[in-house]
Structure formats: C-alpha cells, structure tokens
Design a binder for these strands. Structure first.
Lengths: 157, 157
DNA sequence: ACGTATTATCTCGCTGAGCGATATTATCGC
DNA sequence: GCGATAATATCGCTCAGCGAGATAATACGT
C-alpha cells in the first residue's frame, strides 16, 4: 500500500484533471451546504428535496420509505426530514388512496422554484461552453464523466 | 422565478451532461461517507484529512485554525475534529516552536496510506480514458470542468 | 519594560440530526 | 376475521457542531 504513494508524480497532467473533478465535487458540496443554510435548511433537507424533484421528473411517486432509502436514513430520521420540509411548506404528506399505509410526498410549487433558483444559474454557467464544442469534444466530456461515475459507483479493488 | 421552470426541456443534451456531472458530485459524497464509516470516522474527519494532505502537498503547514476555516467549522468543532483524528492516530498536534500559540498538525504516515487507499483506485479508473484522448479532447474536458468549477465558486446572480 | 489589544486554541453547556428499538396503523393471505 | 407483513411514526439516546467564554502566547503603543 505504501507503494501507491510513488505511483504518480505530482505534476502528472492526468492527476491535474482528477483534482479538477474532485474540486468540482467538493465545491458542489459546499454550495449545497451554503444554499441549505441560506434557506434555513440542512444539507440532508436539500438532498431530500432534490431526490423528490428527481422522482417527480421521473414519474415515480415518492413515499417516505423511498426517500429514506435514497438518503440512507432510517425511518426515524426520514420522518424528521419530512417533518422539517413540511414545516417549511416545501412538501406535504398525502395518504395514498390505494394503500393507506403509504404516505406520498407532494412537492409544493415553492420547492420547485427553490430547486430552480439553486440549479438554474449553475446549469446555465456550467453548460455555457458546450455549444462551442464539436461532436468529438462533447463525446469526450461525456465519456470522461461517465467513466468517473463508473469508477465511483463500482466497488474499489 | 417561475419562468425558469420552462427554460429548458428535459431531454436537453446539455442538461444531460450537467446531470452526469451532478451525479459524479453526489456519488463522490456518498463514497466519502462510506469510506468514513468503514474506518470509524465521520465525513468531516475524511474531509479534514484530505485538507491536511492537500496542504502538505502544497507545502503549507496546517494549523488548527487553517483546518477549521477550510472545513467551515468554528474553533470548538475544529478542536473536536482534531481530537478524533488524533485519537485514531492519523494526526498529531505539534506546538509551533516560533509561535507557541499555534498548533501544527502533522499527518501521520498511516493517514497518507489511508488517503491513497481511498483515492488511488479512484484516480486510476477515472483517468484511464484520458490517454485515448487527443489534445483537443483533453482540453475540452479540462475546460468543461474548469467552467463548472467557476460556476460553483462564483456567487449566483 | 508594562499594560492592553490581538491571535490561536481549548473548555463548557447546549441544540438538534440521526440511530435503535418499539409502537401504531393499514393491507394481504389464509 | 386473524395472524403475518409492510409502512410510517414515536421515544429515548448519542454525539457532531455551535455560541460564549476561558486560557495562553504574542504584538504594539507609550
């Protein structure tokens, strides 16, 4: 394991790109925390909101259990998150008519606006360089990101 | 603000790349949490360790205050983080000889190995596609990441 | 040199997020 | 209907991080 330390040089251009990607990930986390604080929420609440918005976009109806699993929380923690979001008027609990054990989570319009106010400018600025890329360049970006995602999701050796 | 909602279509290819980047950021966070749990640490501890390793690589001598600022913690929280890292034998406190108010944080070799065991495989897999790229493709990836980083670090409109 | 302001870190008490265990309520198979 | 199962909620607890203030070393004006 100590051998790994000398595997790469510090000025390795590949490493530089990796560090760039890592910086993006780190900053993303910081921005999420800042956004949360700015709106009287916690990081978990923001993540929950995003989960819920993603689910809605995917046409999945989100339940408490679904959300808890997505956030890696147990039922107690999940209830607490939903309580907070409900108190902020961002989400409302709706009993499922067909299975009345289930609680469906309805994302309020206000939350959607909040989500867009968070991601909107970020998206615009981030993708602003893409129109200047040709097919191969765009494909390269996509491939690199996909590879990074695979590396992160696959179990380490 | 409601106008933002209709600004982009869901199948916008630009948005797809943004989602890919966002997924990378999210997964990075999850992996960090998993790594932390695996080694009896908290996410903050891992982030602290990375901060310290980065500082060492940059030739900065890390103090408690420096670390706290980097993590967005106040002094009480910072002390707690260092306590935990010290208890795990990953970091040791060394009084600065020239300014004896300061506590320098020395990263133990064990921590460096830990860092490499975390990032090593991730780096290898992530950058594995880069050798197949030509100059323009590599530059495109770099530019895209840099733009994303700028978008994240600049204040939102 | 000397008191005062400043800087760096730590201690104390507290709030609150999230956990484990358990309770409550609803559905399903028999 | 009735136990078994599933979905969510409640209770009590632990511990990360905060605010306020303590401690200790340094800088600085006079």
């Amino acid at each position: 394991m100590t051998a790994a330390r000398s595997r790469r040089k510090h000025d390795d251009p590949d490493l530089e790109i990796f560090h760039l990607l890592r910086a993006v990930a780190v900053e993303y986390g910081l921005r999420q925390a800042a956004f949360a604080a700015e709106h009287g929420m916690h990081v978990t609440d923001v993540r929950a909101l995003i989960r819920l918005l993603d689910a809605e976009r995917a046409g999945i109806d989100a339940t408490a259990g679904f959300l808890g699993a997505g956030l890696g929380l147990n039922s107690a923690g999940t209830t607490a998150v939903i309580d907070r979001l409900e108190r902020l008027g961002l989400v409302s609990r709706v009993r499922d008519v067909h299975d009345r054990r289930r609680v469906l989570l309805k994302v309020e319009d206000h939350a959607k606006d909040l989500g867009w106010s968070y991601f909107g400018p970020l998206i615009d600025k981030t993708v602003s360089v893409l129109p200047g890329f040709d097919e191969r360049e765009t494909a390269a970006v996509r491939l690199f990101l996909q590879t990074a995602l695979d590396a992160l999701t696959s179990q380490p050796t």
